[in-house]
Design a protein around this nucleic acid. Sequence first.
RNA 1: GUGGGAAUAGCUCAACUGGCAGAGCACCGGACUGUGGCUCCGGCGGUUGCGGGUUCGAUUCCCGUUUCCCACCCCA
Length: 427
Amino acid sequence: MVIKAVRGTRDLLPPETAVWNFVESVAREVFRAYNFQEIRTPVFENTELFARGVGEETDIVAKEMYTWEDRSRAASEKGQSLTLRPEATAGIVRAYIEHKLGDRGLNKLYCIGPMFRRERPQKGRYRQFYQIDAEVIGPASAGSDSPARDAEVLEMLATLLDRLGIREWNLQLNSVGCPNDRVAFNEALRKALEPVKEKMCADCQRRAVTNPLRVFDCKVPEDQPIIEKLPRISQFLDEGCRQHFAAVQAILTKVGVPFTLNDRLVRGLDYYTRTAFEFTHGALGAQNAILGGGRYDGLSEALGGPPAPGIGFAIGEDRLVMSLQEKASDESVVRKPDAYIAPMAGMNADAARLARELRRQDLIIELGDDSFRLKKSFEAASKAGAKYILIVGENEIQADAFALKDLATGEQVSVPRAQLAQRIRGG
RNA sequence: GUGGGAAUAGCUCAACUGGCAGAGCACCGGACUGUGGCUCCGGCGGUUGCGGGUUCGAUUCCCGUUUCCCACCCCA
């Protein structure tokens, strides 16, 4: 019985891995320009962290976590419940509290790595998936609650998507207000749904009871006129939230980042407050949300830490790569060998020496084998996509000059050892 | 967790109503022992996802199961 990758997991193979590296290196460059620094937290944490941080009633915590009881070391000791992280923010905020990062003022952190959720796999959804996550968090005195930070994060994301070459993105923006606003809104929503829910689809009738906010996700055409008349969160924002949201929009407009106000946008994690957003991209099927995030001003306190307003986002790297598939054949992403070294019989040692010299000069060198007939070396060089083939034989060693052939043009010249690197680089 | 579709060579796909499991590409070798791509010739490659059932005979029909895909749910 062959062993295969388990359900919902997959191997990332070349050349696709080059696209992943491209995405991550562009992300790191952009983050650096905005003075974000990397944090790496463990992939598993105490189960309690996610229960309190993400919310007991969320689908993620209620039914999607990989949780297990870790063995105790002694009979007297209790085992502990551990969980593979289903998202990054809770772990980062835990680290913020644990290491008193608030003492440093404003923290701008990013984290790239795998997350785990036990969902039914489909396109753009895996049980081990990858997120590029960033957070701005700190004491309010450091400006962490300023709308300027919200706008900065959104503008950075627009820059990142542009730099990656994604053109058709759409920024959906909303404010979900403070906890108080949401309680009032939820009540009003329930009240408004009561008399009309009979006329709605089965899903909405269920949502009206369990999770009224989700009614706004309904796509059934017949329900839309009813949904249009329901109260909106925007009508329930207090003065502070209203001004905060207005300030975010004013900055985005000024810096030229286009956005769409969407007061039907609700986010699934309990900790979100005020600004909530989502970047979508067509051609991704039902999983069209490429990244999402928002503000979480009460999260630190919920985890037993000091007040620490924050805003962050998570990019679905799998989905991002999916929308960049054409890059897999792009030469700027997938680098091919500059030269293929073809040793004649008995010339492996001399070929290795030459390869070492050229590689030290930052060239990509594929080293062949002296058991290959020259014809086979040419085929291997072509298949590898090498620009040049470099022949190492008796004649070449005698003269200390090597036959260098451009595989595209067929032009062949003899080049002294000392000039090889420059010749290969210069073309 | 719910509903639908699919699974045949490394890849993309054929195989009529149940009758010898095939092609293209890829790979290996030769024509050509110091010069590739083109061409020609040859070769390797399969428990038809897995397990059961019906049948003289199953890739084909039936049941179960696993995985993937699509949608729901939810989310990145």
